[in-house]
Design a protein around this nucleic acid. Structure first.
Lengths: 150, 150
DNA sequence: AATTTTTACAGAATATTATTCTTGACGATT
DNA sequence: AATCGTCAAGAATAATATTCTGTAAAAATT
């Protein structure tokens, strides 16, 4: 369904989206129209979700990262709580962890105060949920995630 | 140094990089040449690090996510270990955690075997380092990070 | 305060690229 | 063999990027 040529296109776009189509076609040795066709197809199929700018976290950091473990007490619907957490703009990632029966949430907050406020007003207000363990990040060596723009 | 107009440009590119420059200029009501000038400037300043394709993790997932806590025993140079972890291609993120004296590493592996092999061959071979706690992810509700292409 | 310097932006001209359309080749299906 | 669908090349046209020049406002310098 997705062949080596399309994978190669994805690899190129992963490094440098926003380069012209002809440049991609030159790199993989295909006509521009053919490459365009493949890209449009993957966009339609939902494989390609979009394109985004990669910001330098050291030059453009709005707040510090923290990982928060979120425990679930009552669980009427597991999926529902995940979606509610995902809806909080400050929360970058929501993962449900095997074995630990909790979510691991990655977020950004300006400082400790903002983090506390965020947990109180947007996390603990979700029914049956409590943040049990916060891991503030001191330094980041590699991060490919989207950085929120204020 | 970075004003509201540039922030607006970043917001647009965050949602949809790879839209034409003229479209950006239309949305913020500025001439294309002016927008281009601002973008090039931010690229030079290192605020913009690049552009990448956003892949749909549900449609295009190569392996499962896992978070691994990596403890540091000997520490000749803290930064050096962070960089060594960051150099492993399968590792998506490397964060140094306050208070816990460890790294929190996010990675992707095809299955449990591949995860074990990865830890044995590429993590434990780093001197003074040991993976203490692996949190396999069962479900992900939100993720903005880069997905590795096989 | 006057002058220079820098910065931001518009507008036009040219170079480059995107997009569409047509065509042909190849494989699979009937 | 005929038909269908897929894939890709090539040409033509539409759209866009990029560069250049000029101008006005803001900073910096004297």
């Amino acid at each position: 369904m997705i062949d080596d040529v399309s994978l190669e296109i994805l690899r190129i776009l992963q490094e440098k989206a926003r380069i012209p189509n002809v440049e991609v076609s030159r790199q993989i040795g295909l006509a521009p129209s053919a490459v365009l066709e493949r890209i449009r197809k993957m966009e339609k199929q939902g494989i390609i979700d979009g394109y985004e700018v990669r910001l330098n976290p050291k030059r453009f950091a709005s707040g510090q990262i923290a990982f928060v473990r979120v425990a679930v007490h009552e669980q009427p619907d597991q999926t529902e709580i995940g979606n509610q957490l995902a809806a909080v703009p400050e929360i970058q990632e929501v993962h449900y962890i095997a074995g630990e029966d909790c979510y691991l949430v990655k977020l950004r907050a300006a400082d400790a105060d903002a983090l506390g406020r965020l947990l109180r007003t947007k996390v603990h207000t979700i029914k049956g949920v409590v943040a049990t363990n916060t891991l503030p990040v001191l330094a980041t060596y590699k991060e490919t995630a989207r950085i929120p723009i204020p």
